[in-house]
Simulated assay, not measured.
Amino acid sequence: MVVFIDEMDSLLRTRGSGVSSDVETTIVPQFLSELDGVESLDNVMVIGASNRVDMIDPAVLRPGRLDVKIRVGRPKANQAIAIVDHYLTDDLPLEDGVDAHALSAVLVHDIYGASERRHLCDVQEENGQWHALFLADVVSGAMLKNIVDRAKTRAVKESIETGSDVALTVPLLAAAVEDEYRETRDSMADVDPEQWSRINGMDPIRRIRTAE
C-alpha cells in the first residue's frame, strides 16, 4: 500500500513558526506517532511531496522517518517532449501529415527558446548579479499540460464558430504558448521576489525587473 501526501508543507509546517494558526502543534506529533507505527507494517510506503521543504517540521524529515529525499528538478527539453507526448496524442484531430510527437517537439522548441520573445524579466540574486529569466526557466509539467489544454480549447472554440472540425496545428500550439508566456510574464510584476524564488525552488532573488 502507498500513502501519498501532497503539499506536505501545508499540513506539517514547522511547529511554532507562527506562519499559520499553529494547528500543526497537534497535527505534527500525531502524524509522527502514526508514521512510527507504519515501520512495523509490511508493504506500506509513505510518500510526501512539497515545493517548500524548508517549511516542513524537521522532525518529519529526520532519518528514520522519511528517509529518502528526491529532488525533482524542472524538465529539460527532451523530458518536456516526453511529458507533452502524454497530452498531445495521435488520436486527437491533427494537421494532415503531422504526427503528435512532431508537434510536441515544435511546441517544446518554442517554449525553450532563449530569445527576447520568451524573456520574462530580469532577476537580481543575493550577490547583486542580474540575469535574464526566460519561460524555460520556470516551465513545469503542469505548465506544459496547461499549454496543450489551451490549444485544445482554441480548437474546440474554432470548431464551434466555424461549424467544422478544427485540427491541432503548429499555429494553434504557438498561440497557446504565447498566451502562457504573456500570462506568466505579466504575473511577474506582482510577485514577492524572495517568496516566489522559494516556491519555484530557485536560489534566493532580491529584485525582479520587468519590461515597461
Score class of each variant (00 low, 15 high):
Val170Thr: 14
Ser10Met: 09
Leu35His: 09
Leu107Lys: 05
Gly201His: 13
Asp36Val: 00
Arg206Leu: 10
Thr14Trp: 07
Glu178Asp: 08
Pro204Asn: 09
His109Ser: 15
Ala132Pro: 09
Asp6Asn: 15
Gly16Glu: 02
Pro171Cys: 09
Leu35Arg: 10
Ile47Glu: 08
Asp192Ile: 09
Asp6Arg: 13
Asp42Arg: 07
Asp190Pro: 00
Gly37Cys: 08
Glu178Trp: 01
Ala167Leu: 08
Val123Thr: 13
Glu180Pro: 00
Asn78Ala: 10
Asp6His: 12
Leu94Ala: 06
Glu183Pro: 00
Asp99Thr: 10
Pro93Ala: 15
Val53Gln: 14
Gly18Phe: 09
Val28Leu: 12
Gln124Gly: 11
Ile27Gln: 07
Ser40Val: 10
Phe134Cys: 06
Ala100Met: 05
Asp36His: 03
His109Trp: 06
Pro63Val: 03
Arg65Ile: 02
Val138His: 02
Arg118Leu: 04
Val60Asp: 01
Gly97His: 14
Leu12Met: 13
Ala176Trp: 07
Lys145Phe: 11
Asp67Leu: 13
Glu180Ser: 11
Ile27Met: 09
Ala167Ser: 15
Asn127Ala: 11
Pro29Asn: 04
Glu180Cys: 04
Val138Lys: 01
Asp67Met: 12
Thr162Met: 06
Ala77His: 07
Gly48Gln: 10
Ile27Thr: 15
Arg182Leu: 15
Ala175Tyr: 04
Pro193Ile: 03
Arg13Glu: 13
Ala176Val: 10
Arg15Val: 10
Leu66Glu: 05
Pro171Arg: 06
Ile83Lys: 06
Ala80Phe: 01
Val3Leu: 15
Val191Lys: 01
Leu35Val: 08
Gly113Phe: 05
Pro58Thr: 02
Lys76Tyr: 04
Ser33Gly: 08
Arg182Lys: 14
Leu88Ser: 07
Arg206Gly: 01
Leu92Thr: 06
Met55Ser: 14
Trp130Val: 08
Arg206Ala: 10
Asp186Met: 05
Leu144Asp: 12
Val3Asp: 05
Tyr112Gln: 00
Val138Asn: 03
Glu194Val: 12
Pro75Ile: 11
Arg150Gln: 12
Glu183Val: 04
Ala151Gln: 06
Lys145Leu: 13
Asp54His: 10
Pro58Met: 01
Asp149Phe: 01
Thr89Val: 04
Arg62Met: 03
His131Phe: 11
Val60Lys: 03
Met188Thr: 04
Asp6Cys: 12
Ala100Ile: 04
Leu41Gly: 01
Asp99Lys: 13
Lys157Trp: 07
Pro63Asp: 03
Thr162Ile: 05
Ser33Met: 06
Ala142Pro: 13
Ser104Gly: 12
Leu92Gly: 04
Ile147Tyr: 00
Asp91Leu: 00
Val148Arg: 03
Lys145Ser: 11
Gln79Thr: 12
Asp203Val: 14
Gln195Ile: 13
Leu32Met: 03
Glu24Trp: 12
Ile70Arg: 05
Leu94Val: 08
Arg65Phe: 03
Asp192Leu: 08
